[in-house]
Design a protein around this nucleic acid. Structure first.
Lengths: 210, 210
DNA sequence: ACCTGAACACCGTTCAAGT
DNA sequence: ACCTGAACACCGTTCAAGT
């Protein structure tokens, strides 16, 4: 598994080959099929192992439940950021060990907010989906883009394309090109996360709405 | 492009082959490379075309900005729900025509909430990431799972696995198996969406926090 | 400008045979 | 129980040649 992760880090998903991995482990390609059903399973298992490293970064006890959720979410993002190939393979209806651990931790923290029991499952999965789904959206494109052009060059290039659009058709984008050029990916992740957690905070807030 | 979408709907991403698509169009596989750089681009273009169909479903004018965002988000989910292969290919740093249109519509609606201009870009992309990322998380697994087992069988099976976990290690999951079995995918999507939009509502609310 | 189709390089996967 | 490695079936992609 470690060898698979190393190969994926170096050469990406397409670069991981049964022949190559087998050679690295000093066996034949057929041997791997004794341990794994197919390549999909191999990559999925490797991604789950990478996910597991997030728990080392996220402290087990936090002051508040919301702060704990935030720390956990950021730990997952950072780990996937270092292994872009894994981002699109960490999926939610958790079956794999570390995906299960993640879901349970989120659920435990959500329960601690005092949210009514009947809403806890839906909110827990929603947060879990946000963490893995939005991380994947932000990180996965780097596989395609990062290979050819630098991030800066890419942003400048798309900003120029946005400027050339017709303001009548794209009123928002044409006036937002500087924000695009200067934005930070991690901020985008935390912006949505905080919006979501604010919503959760309001939902658990005993103060009645206006 | 229509032929490609049809093939993807029928046989999935792996089932779409240059030879097969070429035969369907009465040419050779090499001919396709005149129109498209490689398979990745072909699938990405097909996914963007599918995304475009969401605009037909989402009414252009809504009462409120938040309601408009909600309607748009649900329209995208529903379209991807009908074309699961496309879900993981609709990515955000928008270059393709319909992805651009989506981002602009979100931005225009966000601007209408009265959110300060300097926060509009971050919030717009956050919502865009939620829509495409979380949809992908919920819908994409069906490709792998749906092929072999029914949704009900799959849920019952994972619920049983959760029940067998050690409650000391997984306190939340072990007491949440019935929610798993009875949940609705679309509800999970809207739960997080509403949380996020509630957070946005609070952020634009003139009433000061307690 | 666009199509043809044979050919190349390479893969995932299988399986009879081994230890 | 686990490994070996040749072989199968099939791809994406290229390219010289055509129209």
């Amino acid at each position: 598994m470690d060898a698979a992760v190393a190969l994926l880090d170096e050469r990406g998903e397409r670069g991981l080959t049964f022949r190559l991995l087998a050679k690295q482990l000093n066996t034949g390609p057929g041997a791997l099929y004794w341990h794994v059903t197919n390549k999909d399973e191999l990559v999925t298992l490797a991604a789950d192992q990478v996910l597991g490293r997030a728990f080392a970064a996220a402290p087990r006890l936090e002051k508040g439940a919301i702060a704990g959720l935030r720390a956990l979410a950021i730990a997952v993002f950072d780990v996937l950021d270092r292994h872009p190939w894994a981002a699109s393979h960490v999926t939610a209806p958790a079956t794999l060990p570390n995906a299960l651990r993640l879901l349970d931790r989120i659920g435990t923290l959500v329960a601690r907010t005092g949210l009514p029991a009947e809403r806890q499952f839906a909110v827990t999965t929603a947060i879990s989906y946000y963490i893995t789904g939005v991380s994947a959206q932000i990180i996965a494109p780097r596989i395609t883009v990062g290979a050819t052009t630098s991030r800066d060059a890419y942003l400048t290039q798309t900003a120029e394309r946005w400027e050339k659009l017709d303001p009548a058709d794209y009123p928002f984008l044409t006036r937002t090109t500087t924000d695009l050029r200067d934005h930070d990916d991690r901020d985008q992740y935390t912006t949505g996360l905080d919006l979501l957690l604010d919503g959760l905070n309001t939902a658990t807030d005993p103060r009645p709405p206006a």
